[in-house]
Amino acid sequence: MLTLTEIEHKAAARLDPAHYDFFAGGAGDERTLRANVAAFDRHRLRPRVLRGTGQHGTGQHGTGQRDLSVTLLGQRLAFPVLVAPTAFHRLAHPDGEVGTARAAAATGTIMILSMAATQPVEEVAAAGAPLWFQLYPQPDRSFTERLVRRVEAAGCGTLVVTVDSPVFGRRERDLRNGFLDLPDGLACENMREPGAGHPREIAWDPGLGWDTVAWLRALTPLPIVLKGVLHPADARLAVEHGVDGIVVSNHGGRQLDGAVATLDALPAVVDAVAGRLPVLLDGGVRRGTDVVTALALGASAVAVGRPVVWGLAAGGTDGARAVLELLREDVDRAMALCGADRPSALTPDLVAPAHWCHP
């Protein structure tokens, strides 16, 4: 399999159709889901040449002298792609989130573990990958505090707080399929408290506000990253509230259908934070050229969710690892062809809108 699309097709053939739709689907008419991918097609790379980005003879799969590494919040990644938080990995393959973490460890990157994981944070952390934890702040703050302490004890390096979900998006594929609960034997294990027979259900909090961010900031010494920022005014408020990073995200098109594509939202958010904190992007990344485009427009790194799940479904741990390795090779090749020997050499002048190239 040469592309992430081919891996998705293999995953689709192996998964129960309702489970495939859960992973693949978005909210409403799925306009935002499609827009995330389409946004990259509205941009073209404008490469530099004769920049000496590697040694002659490294071969079509080689990695020359280019340095793909980046450092985020004190942690080094071998290349600028993280594993985005996605729910229910054991629904895709028995290896589950532990398998995904092993794939991340093998490729030198960070996994952001979903609060809705089907394996507990302690087991996933033991797989050896640098781990961040994605949190939906719960209306029950005492439970949220206990979960944060559990995450700290497990060794997670950063708290990734999802802020775009005061209510649950209308996911019509799931409604049509009647996919409302996990199969027997699977549960959101991070919602299960020690000694409890059954996990809590994740609650959505329409009252979520900046006071919650301030409370979390006072609660934990962990770096806090806000996931789900699309508006530059919210990016400026994030800086004012002392957060440590932002993920430009529309929840993969699974919450507000019709929301702006993340790549389209990225430049204004980058301008708003003015280098005061790292800005990540997720949504629609399917090629190394997509990663290079996002980095050139100001992202510090990108996160990928669905492609890693497709790899997991297609081949367990090895399949998830293959997805990350394929992206790493593709990023390296795209950087070389753009005349960049490191991510910091990717600058906005390397990107042009598609209409500029094709009037």
Rank of each mutant, 00 (worst) to 15 (best):
M1G: 14
L4Q: 08
A11Y: 03
D16F: 03
D21T: 12
F23R: 10
F23N: 08
A27N: 05
A27L: 09
G28V: 13
D29V: 07
T32K: 13
L33H: 10
R42H: 11
V49M: 13
R51T: 07
G52K: 13
T53Y: 03
H61S: 14
G64F: 00
Q65G: 15
L68Q: 05
S69N: 09
S69T: 06
L72Q: 05
Q75C: 12
V83Y: 11
F88L: 13
H89N: 15
R90Q: 15
H93V: 07
E97A: 09
R102G: 05
A104G: 05
A106P: 13
T107A: 12
T107H: 11
T109A: 10
M111L: 15
Q119M: 07
V121N: 07
E123I: 00
L131E: 05
L131D: 02
P137I: 09
L147M: 15
L159G: 05
V160K: 12
E172L: 15
R176T: 06
N177G: 08
G178F: 05
D181K: 14
G185T: 00
C188R: 07
R192N: 07
P199I: 00
I202Y: 03
W210L: 08
D211L: 07
A214P: 05
L216R: 10
R217I: 00
A218H: 13
P223T: 07
V225R: 08
G228V: 04
D234H: 09
G242A: 06
V247D: 01
G253V: 04
G253L: 05
T262F: 08
L263P: 10
L266E: 01
V269R: 15
V269Y: 04
V270F: 04
D271W: 01
A272C: 09
V273D: 05
P278H: 06
G283R: 08
G284D: 02
R286E: 11
R286W: 12
G288A: 13
A294D: 03
A296Y: 03
A299L: 10
A301Y: 04
V302T: 06
A303N: 02
G305S: 10
R306W: 01
R306T: 04
P307R: 11
V309Y: 10
G315R: 11
G316D: 06
G319M: 09
G319R: 12
G319I: 05
A320M: 08
R321D: 00
L324Y: 06
D330P: 03
V331M: 06
R333L: 14
A336V: 08
A336P: 03
G339E: 04
R342K: 13
R342I: 00
P343Q: 07
S344G: 14
A345H: 13
L350Y: 02
H355L: 11
H355T: 03
C357S: 12
